[in-house]
Each structure stands twice: as C-alpha cells, then as structure tokens.
C-alpha cells in the first residue's frame, strides 16, 4: 500500500494557534483539514509536508449559519453537512444538487468545504458553486482577517490567495430572495471528478432576469465563471432562445483541454449544454414552477 513520507503532526487548539504553528514551521508545514485531498497526495509522495497542523478539533471553524443577508459556512463544515443543511437548501438548491454529486457519502463525511476550496483543484465542483453565487472567503493571518471574493480567490490550478501563514476560516454567500439555482454535472461514473459541471442561479422578476450567476468547473473558465453570459441575460426574458444564447456565451468562456475524461470539443459542448439545462431549471425555480 502506498504510504506517506515521514512527517510530523501537531494539533492546533485554536485558529490563532494554528497560524502561529504555520509561522513557526514555515512553508514545509501544511494545514490538515479533512485530509481527503492532502493525504492521497502524500501517499503518492507528490506532497511531502514536514509538519501537519491538524485543525479538526477547532469548533470555531464549524457550523453553518445565517449572518444578516449572508450564509456563512465554517471552513471545517463537511460536505455532508452542506448536503443535509436545510437552511442552505432553503436559499439555494444548488448546494444540495452539487454536494450530492461530489465524491461519495464516506468522503463527504470527512472532506470539508475549506479543504476543497483551498485545494483549488481545477475540477472542484464547489468552486463552480462559489463563483456562480459570487461568494467570498474569509482568510485569517497573524495580522487579522481579510475577505476575498471567490471570483478573485484562485490564482491558477491549485493556487489561491491564501498565503503560507494564513488559514481560510469561512465562506460567505449572499442571500438572494427569489433566486432559483441548479447544478448540472457530467461525470464518467458516480463519484468521479466532473468532465464538466455548470452551476447557476437566476432571479426572475416580472418576467425578466434581474440577477444571475453562472459557474463552470473542469473546463478552465477563468475564475470558474462566465461573466459575458451573465451580462447577456440581465434584463432579458428567460426564453429558450435567450438561455441558449447565454449558454453559448458560457461555453465561450471555457477553454478546456483534452484528457481521459474527454476531448476538448466535448467538454466545450458540455459547458454549453449543462449551462443551458441549469439555467432552464433555475429560471423555472425562480418563477415558482
């Protein structure tokens, strides 16, 4: 069986303790959240941190709550908690639809929102949701906290704005009354990473789209979103033609590469098709259908 390279392990007792441990151990230390991205990489010996700082005991990073007009998820909220959260579902069906197709029930028991976001896999489903909903993340360091919009969070595959001695503590999403949302994913098999996914929300008011967000993953869309498609839809009726046009614009934002999940032309097609399907359902949901 594959085994990690030698490492050390320490449990953080608070977020500030974790940050001081990161500062103490430098760039060779890594935060250990759910471990479901990091430990497999350590077993492959692609990741070789010398110190693991375990934040699983930090209750301050747990919990899902409403804070004013925002939904707030602690970084250590598990995928299962997102899947089963009534309050998230009440505001956005997309959370449940997306989480239902992330990995499998056991991985969802252990894997966390913060871990997934910070791993920043270019095929991460939650990144499409985060960008679609225009969420933001709260990052804490020794000098305090800062809030970064998710549409600015990623600097590239596996790279985020979280600095070596910082921790993501929360993800926040604006509540949008009347929004309908949906998630569409094509995977080679249940539990696989997406070939392509599209997540959207739409607010339809008096027959016109007044607000929307479109997220894409696994197709190299910049910041996991499709702004031109969003801009196109605002002020338009959610007709089949308009939604088709928006979906085409979303596909234009995708720049996928071929791999064993599929050739680039197929992924580009999926960006279009899945965006369209998600828009149809989200618009219908917003209109109470």
């Amino acid at each position: 069986m594959q085994t990690p390279a030698p490492t050390d392990y320490v449990r953080a007792t608070s977020v500030s303790h974790a940050i001081s441990l990161l500062e103490e151990h430098g760039e060779e230390s890594r935060i250990l959240a759910g471990g479901h991205s990091l430990l497999p990489m350590m077993k492959l010996r692609i990741a070789r941190p010398e110190m693991l700082i375990d934040i699983n005991e930090l209750d301050e990073l747990r919990g899902i709550r409403v804070d004013g007009d925002e939904l707030v998820l602690g970084a250590m909220v598990t995928h299962r908690e997102v899947l089963e959260s009534p309050v998230l579902f009440e505001h956005y069906a997309i959370f449940r639809e997306c989480e239902k197709v992330i990995a499998d029930p056991l991985v969802r028991n252990r894997g966390t929102v913060g871990g997934s976001m910070c791993q920043a896999d270019p095929s991460e489903d939650l990144s499409a949701v985060g960008s679609a909903l225009r969420g933001s993340v709260v990052i804490q360091g020794a000098s305090g906290t800062r809030t970064v919009p998710l549409r600015e969070f990623h600097e590239g595959p596996y790279e985020t704005q979280v600095e070596p001695a910082e921790i993501m503590t929360e993800v926040r999403f604006p509540i949008r009354p009347g929004a309908g949302s949906a998630y569409e994913k094509v995977e080679r098999r249940v539990g696989d990473w997406p070939v392509c996914s599209a997540g959207v929300y739409v607010v339809v008011s008096d027959g016109l789209v007044t607000d929307c967000g479109i997220g894409l993953t696994a197709v190299s869309a910049e910041h996991f979103c499709a702004p031109a498609a969003e801009a196109f839809l605002i002020g338009k009726a959610p007709t089949e033609d308009n939604l088709r046009s928006a979906a085409q614009l979303a596909a234009d934002a995708a720049d996928p590469s071929s791999d064993q999940r599929g050739p680039a032309d197929y992924k580009k097609h999926l960006a279009n098709e899945l965006t369209y399907r998600a828009l149809v359902r989200a618009a219908a949901a917003s209109q109470g259908a």
Partner: peptide
C-alpha cells in the same frame, strides 16, 4: 462507451480509445 465516446460517436467523430485522448 464513456459519455465522451458516445457523444463523439453521435457527432460522427469517434476516437481511438486505447490511446490518450487528443
């Protein structure tokens, strides 16, 4: 017959399955 291969077949663009997808 992965989703990609089925879609490509429908498009009349089948792929060579035993080699890396180009």
């Amino acid at each position: 017959l992965t989703p990609a291969n089925v879609w490509r077949a429908i498009q009349g663009r089948p792929v060579r399955v035993d080699m890396a997808v180009e």
